[in-house]
């Protein structure tokens, strides 16, 4: 066998339109973690307690979650050990992939989290301030485990801007521009949270999700605004998202993941059942 790129081209041309097989759209519950417990901020404030992260993780993976995201919202140096212990417990107990984020700023942080069983890490503010971090992580661990999280807000001028520090600090950087540079540096996935939509339950930000998904060569995870099952359909179809992330609607059982995936499948969207 000596299959080279020429042969690939042939295969590609003969195999277009195979509908039965292919990558599925992913449903990702997000668990915000504070002091080892799950919380969810409504518009990044008004935090409520929703349970033990490992128990929730087992529950969600049993219901068909495709992966999980854990965001340590109080990540400080003292808390880092607690987070590593939690990562170990999660990795030992669930059999689906998970991402860990929140206050990650060094290659060493990431090394420890991955070594203890995290599949990916998400970086946000630190990566914006020192973009070389993305390149270092990608070179050291591979782009597949580097998720760039972007908190974004649409301003009066109709443009989407990057916000830092959990949405508290505005920058003058346009989201499309930052996402493009981050991918060039080695980000393997974009986790896009619309601050305009987050907590509203009025649906995801379809326009910026579609813009990024259609222009970037990496998967885009849409986040912020999920309120109904139809919103997920919308963000996969109009938003062309590769994955959709939500928190409170799952935590408070407003939508069951099993029902959501059955619904999406009936609507003709390819999901893992």
């Amino acid at each position: 066998m000596n299959d080279g790129p020429a042969n690939t081209e042939t295969l590609l041309n003969t195999h277009l339109g195979a509908g039965v097989h292919g990558l599925t759209k992913r449903i990702i519950p997000c668990l915000d973690i504070k002091d080892g417990r799950t919380v969810k901020g409504i518009n990044f404030e008004d935090i409520r307690d929703a349970g033990d992260p490992v128990e929730l993780a087992i529950l969600y993976s049993g219901k068909g979650a495709d992966e999980l995201v854990f965001l340590d919202i109080t990540a400080t140096i003292e808390k880092r050990k607690t987070l590593v212990e939690l990562v170990k417990r999660i990795a030992a107990n669930i059999n689906i992939p998970f991402t860990v984020g929140g206050g990650i700023s060094t290659v060493e942080d990431v090394g420890v989290l991955l070594k203890n069983g995290a599949d990916k890490v998400s970086v946000n503010t630190a990566a914006f301030k020192h973009p070389a971090l993305i390149e270092q992580l990608s070179n050291e661990f591979g782009s597949q485990c580097v998720v760039l999280a972007i908190d974004t807000k649409k301003e009066q001028d109709g443009e989407w801007y990057v916000y830092l520090d959990g949405g508290r600090t505005k920058t003058e950087m346009k989201t499309t521009e930052w996402a493009g540079s981050a991918v060039a540096l080695g980000a393997g996935e974009i986790l896009l949270t619309s601050m305009n939509n987050d907590g509203t339950k009025n649906g995801f930000a379809l326009d910026i999700t579609a813009t990024l998904s259609n222009t970037l060569p990496v998967p885009v995870i849409a986040s912020g605004g999920a309120g109904s099952m139809a919103h997920f359909k919308e963000v996969f179809e109009s938003g062309n998202a590769d994955a959709a992330l939500a928190a409170s609607i799952f935590h408070y059982k407003e939508i069951e993941i099993t029902d959501l995936k059955n619904y999406l499948s009936e609507q003709g969207i390819r999901v893992r059942l």
Binding site: L12, L16, L23, D66, S143, P217, P219
Partner: peptide, 15 residues
């Protein structure tokens, strides 16, 4: 393949 009619996202991540 990164070019052609069907643009693939790389890496392939997911189920």
């Amino acid at each position: 393949p990164t070019s052609g009619k069907m643009k693939l996202k790389i890496p392939q991540i997911g189920w």
